[in-house]
Simulated assay, not measured.
Amino acid sequence: MFSLRLPLLKTASLWATGLALALGLAATPAQALRIKEVAGVQGVRTNQLTGYGLVVGLDGTGDQTTQMPYTTQSLANYLQQMGIVLPASVASSLQLKNVAAVVVTAELPAFAQPGQQIDVVVSSMGNAKSLRGGLLIATPMRGADGEIYALAQGNLMVGGAGAAAGGSKVQVNHLNAGRIPSGAQVERAVPSPLQTGDFVTLDLNTNDFQTARRVAAAINSRMGAGLANALDGRTVQVRAPINTNARVSFLADVEEIPLEASVPAAKVVINSRTGSIVLNQAVTLGPCAIAHGNLSISISTTPVISQPNAFTQGATVVSQQSSVEIKTGQGKVIQVPASPQLGDVVRALNTLGATPQDLLAILQAIKAAGALNADLEVI
């Protein structure tokens, strides 16, 4: 016998705790932000670099070359660059246990100049058991345009350990990826549009016309009238000095200008996979009534044995007899009053005694009824 229960609504202390935390954060008075925290200078950005390389010096934990032919081919190509040419028959039969093919990634910071060091991440792309103790040989790092912007090389730092013997295995953390601090040297600088033109464009982190207007007004009030204009809900155009040093000083002052935070658009974010629900301080509820209860489905199976009479040609037969029982808990209707503040919304939802999974459906129903004054976003 087994029982299948479908709880529609039940008490969840975790949900109450989460909403209480949200209430506490929302109760904090609005703090003045700086422009640098809501916007960035257009064109000042990082660039993604990637490369393919080999890690050598492993303790027998490298790729199984019979299944990873590109590791053998890569090593043969590397040896050829070093002046060592292997016959094709020898190169194809190499059994390399101390070499692993890897993908190397890095972020090239804005304004990075040749000779500067950046960190790189090295990840196995084959069936290597571990990269611990390996050395990444010189690997060109290319940008989206295919040009080489950095050269990576160095000893890997792998934050894990593992051991195996006699069919038993113990492993702590992940062994197939590591990091090389300052493991790449910048070879080429990326041109920046910061010093070109009479204007500098600020890109807001979120699309909000109110924030764009406040940023432009704050700049004009502090730096001079008519310098900044909000082009749309995402960008603000600012007239900046032509001189290089003066422009940098001007932008440094602009980034430090205080900005009163605006109230964001009311939004409820729902993670359908984990059941997480987050409400911002602008969410309000209209008056509504919600009914909830419990539904229980029980399925029981009893074996039934049919025994034939003596001296007959019959056979013993075992069959199953199943019964299905559905129980519905006593449902009730809860009146939810109008909730103009996040604290009121939290208290109203807590009175339902619902789990986060239940609230996924309840909030959607409240929204469909027109009582939830917020946008629902499912991630």
Rank of each mutant, 00 (worst) to 15 (best):
P258R: 10
L259G: 00
L259H: 03
E260V: 09
E260M: 03
A261D: 03
S262C: 07
V263H: 06
P264Y: 06
K267M: 09
K267I: 12
V268D: 01
I270A: 01
I270G: 00
N271R: 05
S272L: 07
R273L: 08
T274Y: 09
I277V: 11
A282H: 03
L285Q: 01
P287Q: 09
C288F: 04
C288T: 15
A289G: 02
I290E: 05
I290S: 13
I290G: 11
A291D: 09
H292A: 11
L295A: 14
S296Q: 12
I297S: 12
I297N: 11
S298C: 02
S298N: 14
S300C: 03
T301E: 10
T302C: 09
T302L: 13
V304H: 07
S306H: 15
S306K: 10
A310Y: 13
F311L: 15
T312C: 07
Q313A: 15
G314P: 03
S319D: 11
E325M: 10
Q330S: 12
G331C: 01
K332N: 14
Q335H: 14
P340F: 09
L342T: 10
L342E: 01
R347T: 10
N350F: 02
N350L: 08
N350P: 00
N350T: 14
N350Y: 03
L352C: 04
L352Q: 04
